[in-house]
Design a protein around this nucleic acid. Structure first.
Length: 822
RNA sequence: GGGCAGAUGGCGGAAUUGGCAGACGCGCUAGGCUUAGGACCUAGUUCCUGAUGAAGGAGUGCGGGUUCGAGUCCCGCUCUGCCUACCA
C-alpha cells in the first residue's frame, strides 16, 4: 500500500525548508546572466484574490524556470500600501489606517507564502512606511528643483464620496474609478508633475517596446494623442486682440465660415460684452457647468450661440461670425477652433443646425476641375485637391498644408505646431493616507521645499478620522505649523498627500536596493538588475501605471541615477479572471476565495489548474471542474513515482536512446523549455508534461522487463519531476527527495535535451488526392521529395482514388505530405 | 463614432513557418475493480450517413477570393469582449 498524496503536509514542509535555506534570495554571481522577473505588486486590501493567484503563479513559473536554467533571478514583491480604502476603513471601523494596512499585509504575505511563490522576502517593500515614502518626497523635491513639479490652479475632478481630487485617468465613465460616484468639478490649487515635458519621448519610446502587446501601445498612443497641425491667429474685429485656433487642417482654412470658442475660454467675457451680456452670460455659465459635469460621458447634442462679433480670417481677410459652443473643449488645443463645415463632420452638424454657410474647398482628386459652388450634402473628410482657395487652389491638400503653414509663418499670424492630448499629472490628494507633499508655505519666501535632511515628512499617527470634508491633516495644528527652512519665520506645511501612483512609478528601482538609507536606490544596483526583463500584470494598468512608470524612469535617467530609458522592455498583459461571463468582483458576488481552494486541493493543484486552463494573456474563465483534473494529475504523478521507487536504487543504467519513451522525454524537455521561455504558453507546457506522464504510464509495465527499459522509465520519471518543479514546486521537491536526490530541486539544473534524440524516428506522410486525405505512410525523416512522390503513387488506395488517371501535378513536402492533383 | 482583440466539439482550450483540425484536460458513454465511491484502471467520445463494421460525406462565426492545399493569408460582413470617446 503506498502513501497517499498529503499535499498539506508536503507544502508546509517545503515552504519551511525553502525559507530556512533562503532559497528565493536573489543571487549575484557575475558569471551568470541576470533575470529580473516582476509582477505588479498588490494593494493590501485584506485577502489575495484569484487575479493575484494567476498573476503571481505565471511569474513564479518563469522565475523558477529561469533560476533552474542558471540565471541570477530577482523576483521581488511588496505592497502598494497607501491609499483610500485604508482611510475609509478607519472612518467606518475606527481602526487606524496603518493598523488596518499592516494587518492586511501580514495576512496576505502568509497567503502568498502558502502559494509557494518564490519571492525574495528580504527585499519586500511597503510603500506606507516612512523608509519608503521618504523617497517619494526626495524624488518630488528633485522634480521641484527642475520645474517638473509645479503648482497650478485648475478645475479638478472631484469625487464627493472619497472627498478627493481624481486624475483624468481615474475618472471612468464620469464616475470615480474606485467607488463609481459621479465626479463633480472643483477649482483648486494643485501640485502637478510635468509629464507633458516627456510626451514626445513617451511616444517615440514605443519603438523600444517591441515585446509589448500591440493594443497596449495603441492605448498609450491614444492617450498621449499627438497631433501635428498649425496654430493660426484670427483677428477679433474692432479690437487689437487675436483669437488663436489650433487646426490639423490648415489646408481647409478658405472654407472656414465661422469660428467657435469654448464656453470656458477667457475671451468669452470680452465677446459677450454689450447689450446681450446678461442673456449670453447666463447661457455661458450654464453651458460651462454642464460641460464640466458631463466630461467623460460622451457626446451630447451640439449647442451654441452667435456672439454677433466677427473674426477676420488672416488668409482671406474675410469676416466670419464668432460662436460660443459646447463642443469645443477648453483644455485641448487653444480652446478655439475654426469651423470648416464642408470638411469636418462636427462643424458640419453645427453649421446645419444654425444655418451657417458651407463652402467646399477640397475636391476629390478625380473631380478637381469641376466647380463647387453649391453646398454639399455631407462633409468630405478625405484627402483631395484644393478649390475655392485663392492662390492655393489646385494643390493636393497634403502639399497645401505645408505651404499654407509656411505662409502663415512668413506673414507672422501662425505657425506649424504639434500638440498633445496628454495632460500634466495632478498628484495632490486631500487625504491622510498618502505621502505628505514635502513643501512649506512661507509668507515671506513663498513655496519652499523641505530640505533633504528633514525628510521624511512623516505622517502623524494621532489623527482623528471623522469623515468630514478635507484632509485630517489640515486639522492637526502640530502638523500644519512649521518654520520656514529659508528664513526661519512661521510657515504653514502642505497638507495634501500624493497620488499613490507616485509610489508605484519607481518601486521596481527600490527592489534593487531595498534597505538603502541615503538614496532611493543605489545606481550601481539599478545598473545590475534593470531593466525588468519581464513585467507581468493586468491590462487595467495599461495607461496609468505603465505610462507613469515610464515617465519616472526617464526623470531618474535625467537625474543621472540610471542609464535606462524604458523600465519594462517586455510586458506580458495577463488576462482577466472571470466567472459566469464577468470579471470576479464583490459587487457581482462571483468571487472564488483562494483560501478555500488551498484547503481542498493544495497550492500545487491550484497553480497547475490556473496555468493550464488558458494562456496567460487570455481571459481565464473559472470553472471548478477543471481543478479536479489537475488535482488528479498530481495524484497520478505522485502514485506512479511512489510505485517506482525501486527504479531509483543504485546508479542509473544506460537507456536505449532509440526507445520511444526516451525520445518523448527529450521532446518534452524541448517543448516545455520553449513554452515557458519563448512563447509564454504555460498551458501547453503543462499539457505536454501530461502527455509525458500518459506515455510513461502506458509503457511502464513492458519497460520494466529490461534493464534499459527500467533506466528509460527512471529517466522519464525524473525528468517529469524536474519539469513539474516550476508548476507544482512542492510536490516536485518532495518526489525529488523521495527518489534519492540530495539538495533542493528548485536550485538544481533545468534538464537539457538532445536535439538528435528528440528527433522523430519515422515521419508520417499524408497522401492527398485533390486536397483530400486518402492514405498515409511512414518513412525515414528527411526522405527526399522524389522518394515521397514515388512511394505515394505506389499506394493501392491512391491508385484506386486516381482511377487510372495520370496525375497532372504532384506536390511533395518533406516530412509532411504528398498532394496529387489529377 | 474610432482603435484593438477574439469567434474552433457538450465545456476550457491545442494546432509555433500556409501542410493529418480537435493535442491536453473536463464532461459524457461502456466495461473492470470495489461493501461503497465525487477514488483508481481500461476502451470510446466533432457531426452526419451506415444495424455494427468497412466505408463515405460535411466541418474552425457568415459570404467571397488567393493557393496543389486555408482555422492560419486577402476582401466584405455579423457577433462578443476590452479600451477610447466632440481631441479640432
Amino acid at each position: 500500500m503506498i502513501e497517499t498524496y498529503d499535499f498539506a503536509a508536503i507544502e508546509a514542509k517545503w515552504q519551511k525548508a525553502w525559507a530556512e535555506r533562503r532559497a528565493f534570495a536573489a543571487t549575484e554571481d557575475p558569471a551568470r546572466p541576470k533575470f529580473y522577473c516582476l509582477e505588479m505588486y498588490p494593494y493590501p486590501s485584506g485577502r489575495i484574490h484569484m487575479g493575484h493567484v494567476r498573476n503571481y503563479s505565471i511569474g513564479d513559473v518563469i522565475a523558477r524556470q529561469k533560476r533552474m536554467a542558471g540565471a541570477n533571478v530577482l523576483h521581488p514583491i511588496g505592497w502598494d500600501a497607501l491609499g483610500m480604502p485604508a482611510e475609509n476603513a478607519a472612518i467606518k471601523r475606527g481602526t487606524h489606517p496603518q493598523t488596518w494596512t499592516l494587518g492586511n499585509v501580514a495576512h496576505m504575505r502568509t497567503q502568498l507564502q502558502r502559494l509557494g511563490i518564490s519571492y525574495d522576502w528580504d527585499r519586500e517593500v511597503n510603500t506606507c512606511l516612512p523608509e519608503y515614502y521618504k523617497w517619494n518626497q526626495w524624488i518630488f523635491l528633485r522634480m521641484l528643483e527642475r520645474g517638473l513639479a509645479f503648482r497650478k490652479e485648475s478645475w479638478v475632478n472631484w469625487c464627493p464620496q472619497c472627498r478627493t481630487v481624481l486624475a483624468n485617468e481615474q475618472v471612468v465613465g464620469g464616475g470615480c474609478w474606485r467607488c463609481e460616484t459621479p465626479v463633480t468639478q472643483k477649482k483648486m490649487e494643485q501640485w502637478f508633475l510635468k509629464i507633458t515635458a516627456y510626451a514626445d519621448e513617451l511616444l517615440s519610446g514605443h519603438a523600444a517596446l517591441g515585446k509589448w502587446p500591440e493594443h497596449v501601445l495603441q492605448m498609450q498612443k491614444n492617450w498621449i494623442g499627438k497631433s501635428t497641425g498649425a496654430h493660426v491667429r484670427f483677428g477679433l474685429e474692432g479690437t487689437a486682440t487675436d483669437i488663436e485656433v489650433f487646426t490639423t487642417r490648415i489646408d481647409t482654412i478658405y472654407g472656414a465660415t465661422f469660428l467657435v470658442v469654448s464656453a470656458e475660454h477667457p475671451v468669452v467675457a470680452e465677446l459677450i460684452r454689450g447689450p446681450r451680456e446678461k442673456e449670453l452670460g447666463a447661457w455661458v455659465a450654464r453651458t460651462a457647468a454642464e460641460m464640466r459635469k458631463r466630461r467623460d460621458v460622451g457626446e451630447t447634442e451640439k449647442d451654441g450661440v452667435d456672439t454677433g462679433r466677427k473674426a477676420v480670417n488672416p488668409f482671406t481677410g474675410e469676416r466670419i461670425p464668432i460662436w460660443i459652443a459646447n463642443y469645443v473643449l477648453m483644455d485641448y488645443g487653444t480652446g478655439a477652433i475654426m469651423g470648416v463645415p464642408a470638411h469636418d463632420a462636427r462643424d458640419f452638424e453645427f453649421a446645419k443646425a444654425y444655418g451657417i454657410p458651407i463652402r467646399t474647398v477640397i475636391a476629390p482628386p478625380d473631380k478637381a476641375g469641376e466647380r463647387f459652388d453649391a453646398e454639399p450634402a455631407e462633409p468630405f473628410e478625405e484627402p483631395g485637391v484644393l478649390v475655392n482657395s485663392g492662390p492655393f487652389s489646385g494643390l493636393p491638400n497634403d502639399k497645401a498644408m505645408e505651404e499654407m503653414g509656411k505662409h502663415a509663418e512668413d506673414k507672422g499670424f501662425g505657425r506649424r505646431s504639434t500638440i498633445f492630448r496628454l495632460r500634466d499629472w495632478g498628484i495632490s490628494r486631500q487625504r491622510y493616507w498618502g505621502t505628505p507633499i514635502p513643501v512649506i508655505y512661507c509668507d515671506r519666501c513663498g513655496v519652499v521645499g523641505v530640505p533633504d535632511k528633514d525628510l521624511p515628512v512623516e505622517l502623524p499617527f494621532d489623527v482623528e478620522f471623522t469623515g468630514e470634508e478635507g484632509s485630517p491633516l489640515e486639522r492637526l495644528e502640530g502638523f500644519v505649523h512649521a518654520t520656514c527652512p529659508k528664513c526661519g519665520g512661521p510657515a504653514r506645511r502642505e497638507t495634501d498627500t500624493m497620488d499613490t501612483f507616485v509610489d508605484s512609478s519607481w518601486y521596481f528601482f527600490r527592489y534593487c536596493s531595498p534597505r538603502e538609507t541615503s538614496l532611493p536606490f543605489r545606481p550601481e544596483d539599478a545598473k545590475k538588475w534593470l531593466p525588468v526583463d519581464l513585467y507581468i500584470g493586468g491590462v487595467e494598468h495599461a495607461i496609468l501605471h505603465l505610462i507613469y512608470s515610464r515617465f519616472f524612469t526617464k526623470v531618474l535617467r535625467d537625474l543621472g541615477m540610471t542609464d535606462i530609458a524604458e523600465p519594462f522592455p517586455h510586458y506580458l498583459a495577463q488576462g482577466m479572471v472571470t466567472k459566469d461571463g464577468s470579471a470576479m468582483s464583490k459587487s457581482k458576488g462571483n468571487i472564488v476565495d483562494p483560501d478555500e481552494i488551498f484547503e481542498r486541493y493544495g497550492a500545487d493543484a491550484m497553480r497547475v489548474f490556473i496555468l493550464f486552463a488558458s494562456p496567460p494573456d487570455k481571459e481565464f474563465a473559472w470553472a471548478e471542474e477543471g481543478l479536479d483534473g489537475c488535482y488528479r494529475f498530481l495524484v497520478r504523478v505522485w502514485t506512479i513515482v511512489a510505485e517506482s521507487l525501486d527504479l531509483f536504487a543504485g546508479p542509473a543504467g544506460d537507456v536505449d536512446p532509440s526507445s520511444a519513451l526516451v525520445r518523448k522525454v527529450h521532446q518534452t524537455v524541448r517543448k516545455v523549455t520553449e513554452d515557458i521561455g519563448v512563447r509564454f504558453h504555460l498551458n501547453t507546457a503543462v499539457s505536454s508534461i501530461m502527455e509525458l506522464y500518459n506515455m510513461t504510464r502506458r509503457e511502464r509495465d513492458a519497460m520494466r522487463q529490461t534493464p534499459a527499459g527500467r533506466a528509460g522509465l527512471r529517466l522519464a520519471l525524473e525528468t517529469m519531476i524536474r519539469l513539474l518543479s516550476p508548476f507544482a514546486p512542492h510536490l516536485a521537491e518532495e518526489l525529488w527527495e523521495r527518489t534519492g536526490h540530495a539538495g533542493l530541486l528548485m536550485l538544481s539544473a533545468w534538464p537539457d535535451f538532445d536535439q538528435a534524440l528528440a528527433r522523430e524516428e519515422m515521419a508520417t506522410i499524408v497522401v492527398q488526392v485533390n486536397g483530400k486525405v486518402r492514405d498515409r505512410f511512414e518513412t525515414e525523416p528527411d526522405t527526399p521529395e522524389a522518394g515521397l512522390e514515388a512511394a505515394a503513387l505506389a499506394l493501392p488506395k491512391i491508385q484506386a482514388a486516381l482511377g487510372g488517371r495520370t496525375p497532372r501535378k504532384v506536390i511533395a513536402i518533406r516530412d509532411k505530405l504528398v498532394n496529387i492533383v489529377g
